[in-house]
């Protein structure tokens, strides 16, 4: 009973886990380079191919593409990295060891959220810098735009990270988790008008399906932040639909966290 009194708090252990996760992550040079460079590479290569200028607004296709790709970059560091990271923790004994300590499960997730928030923010900063240098994407100055960025980022990262954890529990191994999350992510990137711009060029049916998932809304939200007002005409609805974006992303946060609770496994043991 006395042990109950002085046990360290869930939040303080969670933040310590965050520091631990960040150290683990940033010391693995190859993983860091790979994680950050893949979306950047895709943005630079494809962005250089899209040379069109839309005659009605004077906007360049590469700008539309780059703004969406920033969203995809964030999803890659949250959904994909989380899916693989948790599967790896399960395979290398991290979760088994933690299960045998008084660390609360919530602290483990706080640590993961810290890792994902920091790495996703770094990813967004790197991609925005390159996009503004290469494609003339303008870094917004108005506080409203940054407010929009903040909530799109927070809701998107939380939902995607939770879905990543859930995905890791469905996979039997790290390789399975890596392949599974990447396939889902790639298909949704395509169907959500990230790789093909503008999104209106895609068949309606495809966009109707992808509109159920967070990728479309995340990228649309970020286009609203990084592109001028008149770019809204290249969205399916002809407007930014920020209310609906908030709704869908929030719904995925709730669904992701519930799914996470439902399917999360500490080990690969058969029971």
């Amino acid at each position: 009973m006395t042990a109950l009194v002085s046990r360290p708090g869930t939040l303080s252990i969670g933040l310590a886990r965050g520091a631990f996760e960040l150290r683990q992550f940033f010391r693995q040079k190859e993983t860091v380079v790979f994680t950050f460079s893949l979306p950047v590479l895709l943005m630079v290569l494809l962005g250089s191919v899209f040379g069109d200028v839309y005659p009605d607004t004077g906007l360049e296709a590469s700008q539309l593409f780059a703004a969406g790709m920033i969203g995809a970059g964030i999803i890659s560091t949250s959904f994909v990295s989380m899916g693989i990271g948790v599967a790896l923790d399960r395979e290398n004994g991290t979760l088994k060891r933690l299960r045998g300590t008084p660390m609360p499960a919530t602290s483990y997730f706080i640590g993961k959220i810290v890792l994902v928030a920091v790495s996703s923010l770094a990813q967004a900063a790197i991609m925005l810098t390159i996009a503004s240098l290469m494609f003339g994407l303008t870094v917004p100055t108005s506080p409203e735009k940054w407010l929009t960025f903040a909530w799109v980022f927070a809701l998107g990262v939380t939902g995607c990270a939770a879905l990543g954890v859930a995905a890791s529990s469905l996979a039997r191994s790290v390789n399975g988790a890596a392949a599974g999350t990447n396939i889902v992510f790639l298909a949704l990137q395509f169907a959500s008008g990230v790789l093909v711009t503008p999104i209106t060029a895609l068949p309606d049916v495809m966009v109707n399906v992808s509109s159920f998932f967070p990728v479309k809304w995340m990228c649309q939200g970020l286009r609203s932040v990084f592109l001028p007002e008149e770019a809204a005409r290249y969205e399916m609805a002809g407007q930014w639909e920020l209310g609906l974006t908030a709704l869908v992303l929030s719904a995925w946060c709730v669904a992701g966290l519930l799914l996470c609770r439902l399917v999360f496994r500490w080990t690969n043991n058969r029971e």
């Binding site: 310590a16 004994g93 088994k96 045998g100």
Partner: peptide, 28 residues
Amino acid sequence: IGIVLQSASDSAELTVAESLRHFARYYP
């Protein structure tokens, strides 16, 4: 309780002292 695992390869990038200091934080 304390558990000594049979085969684990976690905390690979941390130092011995860092991982011990970190795990010490979980306990009263």
